[in-house]
Design a binder for these strands. Structure first.
Length: 519
RNA sequence: GGCUCGUUCGUCUAACGGUUAGGACACGGCCCUCUCAAGGCCGCGAUACGGGUUCGAUUCCCGUACGAGCUACCA
């Protein structure tokens, strides 16, 4: 393969549903190679399996790719000079090349019936332990075969496998060799006239001038047939790279029963695309040195090396994905809070912590601007304890919407309330809040709140947890949770907003607590 | 059954044939801290097994075991 010709890679999914992590990793690796080498990424839709393919899935799959941050240069939606990019639109091309192989004597017509083949297979299996086709129809004279076909006899087209071992180079596996003894003449066109997968990939990859075929290693065993096809067609054989399988924690091929496996699942959970991309690339690849783990997409394009991809299968580890996701959530909050708020909004909205009308886009409406600020406050207070954005309401709600009656009945809290200074602390604290002017209008600042705590400390002598825990129970219903300077803005802004699920202000919390205690 | 591929801490992985076998997640401990997280520091923990080749194998070769894929007129 000429190494200085421009790199062209392709991702060729079947439109049968949302993209799966395994497929997406293949797409990602192709994309990284394309972008790194300044090459071309082709998206081809393998929809010859009409039973399972649906055109609506095609859109879903493109959405999934786009969400992850991948793009392509040629494809059904973009066009390109090597189209069409849907296999269902290329049937004539496949037929044409099959005829050519027939005419050149590289392929032959096979009139064996299913039953005959079945019987033969069993016999061959019994004798030599291998189910290979006898090559019986190879002996039929081409002229006669054509005549039989013209007379309406249905025949499949078989490729002649050469009499020498088939070797090819694989970038991740090295040199691979298959004895020709074990690959029997494969059918490339069914008697129905529908081409077979192993044939169409070759035609498409060759005609689309694909230089590097990067795909899952479930195709490794099919590769010798394909190499034979390239040779029969007289076309250059591309570079191959077969990526290992992704397994579940039980070391079985990752599937739906392992939980979240489709891109849509991760998106719905609130996993950030950059986290998933980073995680996926780490499955089977590490940079030289092996100590760096965090890579932005840009860095990946620069650093990634196909040669360094491991051939062994990798177990998918959700915990590590969570770790990366936590990292990227925190990073986005710092660098691009706006976009993080957009991603978080749906989760808060579904728990009533944002109004339904809060759009993801920039809004001029003052109320909506405030709501976005509120979302940011919530993020600030709770990101540290969250693996995914989906968990945010689950973590925040127990504090934002606690019931003081329940809180007072909690054994752990009862214990805190029995500490010698708790009563004094609570009495001083609650009366100070009730007297405070800013608290009356839910405008209390975090620093004012902290000042009050200092005053309580000065007046009661309580400090540390004797001081903080009782106050926590009053305003948050629990002796643990985020720092007050992060919590107070959430309470105050939240209460001013009149959200579907009302968030009580500091003052409202104190009042509710006193009512509950009075009972 | 046959063929092909694969095998380093629980998991992801690093290591020109010479390292106290490194890093990360998870786990445990300590620090920070009003608490829970986060963060920082420390720790636990691996070359599947058996033979070669070599002065010296995680690394090269051969077997065994285990796992996976393919073995279709499926993709």
């Amino acid at each position: 393969m000429a190494s200085n010709s421009p790199v062209r890679v392709r991702f060729a999914p079947s439109p049968t549903g949302h993209l799966h992590v395994g497929n997406v990793r293949t797409a990602l690796v192709n994309w990284l190679v394309a972008r790194q080498k300044n090459g071309t990424m082709v998206l081809r839709i393998e929809d010859t399996d009409v039973e399972r393919s649906e055109s609506r899935y095609e859109g879903m799959l493109m959405e999934d790719l786009t969400w992850l941050g991948l793009d392509w240069d040629e494809g059904p939606d973009k066009g390109g000079q090597y189209g069409p990019y849907r296999q269902s639109d290329r049937l004539d091309i496949y037929r044409e090349h099959a005829e050519r192989l027939l005419n050149e004597g590289k392929a032959y017509l096979c009139f064996c019936t299913e039953e005959e083949l079945q019987k033969e297979r069993e016999a061959a299996l019994a004798v030599q332990g291998q189910a290979i086709y006898s090559g019986k129809c190879r002996k039929i004279e081409p002229e006669e075969a054509k005549k039989r076909r013209a007379n309406g006899e249905a025949g499949a087209v078989r490729l002649k496998i050469p009499e020498h071992p088939i070797r090819f180079h694989d970038i991740v596996h090295g040199d691979v060799e298959f004895s020709n003894e074990v690959v029997s003449d494969p059918i490339i066109m069914r008697s129905s006239g529908i081409p077979v997968y192993n044939y169409v990939v070759v035609i498409d990859d060759a005609l689309m001038k694909i230089t590097h075929v990067i795909r899952g290693d479930d195709h490794l065993s099919n590769t010798p047939k394909q190499v034979a096809l390239y040779e029969a067609l007289g076309w250059p054989v591309p570079e191959f790279a077969h990526l290992s399988t992704i397994l579940g924690s039980d070391r079985e091929r990752l599937s739906k029963r392992h939980g979240a496996t489709s891109i849509a699942n991760f998106r719905e959970m609130g996993v950030l695309p950059e986290a998933l991309m980073n995680y996926l690339v780490l499955l089977g690849w590490a940079p030289s040195g092996g100590t760096r783990e965090i890579f932005t997409p840009k860095e990946l394009i620069k650093e990634f090396a196909l040669k360094r991809v491991t051939p062994s299968p990798a177990v998918f580890d959700m915990e590590k994905l969570y770790w990366l996701n936590r990292h990227y959530i925190a990073a986005r909050l710092k660098s691009d809070a706006d976009s993080l708020i957009n991603l978080t909004a749906p989760f808060l909205r579904s728990s009533g912590l944002l109004s339904p009308e809060v759009a993801d886009q920039k809004v001029a409406d003052a109320k909506l601007v405030e709501e976005r600020e509120f979302a940011k406050d919530v993020l600030n207070a709770f990101v540290a304890s969250v693996n995914t954005l989906e968990e945010l309401p689950r973590k925040a709600l127990p504090i934002l919407h606690f019931d003081p009656v329940v809180a007072l009945a909690n054994p752990e809290n009862i214990e805190v309330m029995q500490w010698p200074q708790s009563n004094a602390v609570i009495n001083r604290f609650t009366s100070k809040i009730l007297e405070d002017e800013s608290a009356r209008s839910a405008q209390m600042s975090a620093s004012r709140f902290n000042d009050i705590i200092k005053e309580v400390n000065a007046e009661t002598g309580a400090k540390g947890k004797e001081l903080f825990h009782p106050i926590r129970i009053v305003v948050a219903g629990s002796h643990s949770g985020p720092a007050f300077d992060k919590l107070v803005p959430v309470f105050e802004r939240g209460s001013r907003l009149k959200l579907p699920a009302h968030v009580a202000s500091v003052r409202e919390r104190v009042e509710a607590f006193m009512r509950a205690r009075a009972k």
